[in-house]
Amino acid sequence: MKKIIINRMLMIVPTVITIAFLAFSIMYFSPGNPAEILMRYRNPEGGTDPAALAHYEEMLGLDDPFFTQFENWFTGVLGGDFGESFKTGNPVNEEFFYRIGYTLMLSFTGLAFSLLIGITLGFLSAEFKDSWIDNFLRFTQSIKMSIPSFWLALFFIYVFATQLKWFSAFGYNSPKDLILPGLVLGLSNSSRMVRLVRTCILEEKSSGYVYTARVKGLSEIQIFFKHILKNITLPIITLTGVSLVSMIGGSLIIENIFGLPGIGTYLVSAIVAKDYPVSMGFLFAYGIIIVLINLFIDVLYQFVDPRVRDGANAEI
């Protein structure tokens, strides 16, 4: 197993280089001259004097060939130096580590809610298949899927923050402030989970090994916890990985509404302002996080499924 994990980690190296290259070239080839933008930031009143511009370009290394620039940036990145923001002059990595904390906290809170809601409702829906509980849950899921998350966020703020005053509506002061945005994020991501859990449980219930367990004399509760739960873990892990990735990258609206200083808001404003070091650094780091999540899920498979461990064809 150690060998497989090391193997997987080595396979990350080319991926990381590709991500870095893409993050760099997207910004390099996008229109606009960073030197000009930097000049405007530093001195909003001054015009773009060509001599000064050339000085700035030289200072930033923008007159170097493409690959030299990439090399300079990438060696910096490998050493942990992502450069400084044009706008604020702060080191990019400082900014990133400050913000990624909020995004991760929010994403994991959202993930926890989506797993909690997804597994509970999915289980109920499967257990009471075709009864009024199942029909009701399926009906509410389909309604929930058509509600946009910003509407849900505003609705929750109105009910729980403005009216009931249980939570604050804006900003982050304590972990309690993550509950509302996490709930919104979790709810809007849970529909897929509910459906997946329901389908998987029903599928497993009609499988051969459940029949074996039944005729062996095991109770339905034992069968669920000892047999079914283990088998539905694999698809749940897969969907959890996908959800987590989409939450880290896509919680922009929720971060904005709830005033959380996450990476989403910051990255978008940096891209709009053509703050190249920030955009490149954040794109790269975001890519690395996704790669790491996928690596983690791959490794998790090894632990859960002996067939994957043996390299046999697992039916996933």
Partner: peptide
């Protein structure tokens, strides 16, 4: 009981 289809009658995990 010896269930039908032995290849699926044991829990793979």
């Amino acid at each position: 009981v010896i269930p039908q289809n032995p290849s699926e009658a044991l829990n793979p995990l």
